[in-house]
Design a protein around this nucleic acid. Structure first.
Length: 175
DNA sequence: GCCAACGTTGGC
DNA sequence: GCCAACGTTGGC
């Protein structure tokens, strides 16, 4: 009998959609999260387990926000870009026998029907303690709690509605 | 494009 | 091991 699986953990991973966004992840389905060159972010990736939930966050766009969901598919992936002199992530001091940078493979789960803007995260009291809302927080890989993750998934699944409802909404369709 | 905040580097 | 200088991130 297998040991009990570790409790599922949740993370937020930032990306610039101009480079690689949720639409790209949807297309390729699986992406090694290479190019992270920050030790704290790397260490968080080392703490990940297969199956962990990921909030896929779009940064450096207007507006920034959570665009989709992903899942940790493989852990302990050596970041190949560190050995590629052509890559902007090339790291001359990293040795093949002791790679400095490793990462995880991230699998596409879904694109949220409602894009959860940063402003919406800030406006939600239940998310007040989120790391990514802290001033100056620019870590590209961050832990989030199960409750925060669930809340954001709910927000992302909420039907978007008109900014101002001057008229009463039509009755919901019967199923 | 600005700039605050932060991580990293390197001189000492 | 301190800390100033520098580069980068990322919201605004």
């Amino acid at each position: 009998m297998k040991a009990a699986a570790p409790a599922k953990q949740y993370w937020l991973m930032k990306t610039e959609p101009d480079g690689f966004g949720i639409a790209d992840l949807e297309r390729v389905k699986l992406e090694p999260w290479t190019g992270v060159r920050n030790y704290m972010a790397r260490n968080y990736m080392r703490q990940m387990s297969v199956g962990d939930g990921v909030l896929f966050y779009h940064s450096s766009v207007d507006p920034p926000g959570v665009a989709g969901l992903a899942r940790v598919e493989t852990t302990g992936v050596v970041d190949a870009t560190q050995f590629d002199p052509e890559s902007k992530y090339y790291e001359a001091k990293s040795k093949r026998e002791a790679p400095l940078w490793d990462c995880v493979n991230v699998a596409y789960v879904e694109t949220l029907p409602t894009y959860v803007e940063l402003a919406a995260l800030r406006a939600e009291p239940a998310l007040a303690k989120m790391m990514c809302l802290r001033k100056g927080m620019r870590l590209s890989v961050q832990p989030v709690t199960a409750a925060e993750y669930a809340k954001i998934v709910t927000m992302g699944h909420k039907k978007s509605r008109p900014a101002t409802a001057t008229k009463s909404k039509p009755a919901p369709k019967k199923r």
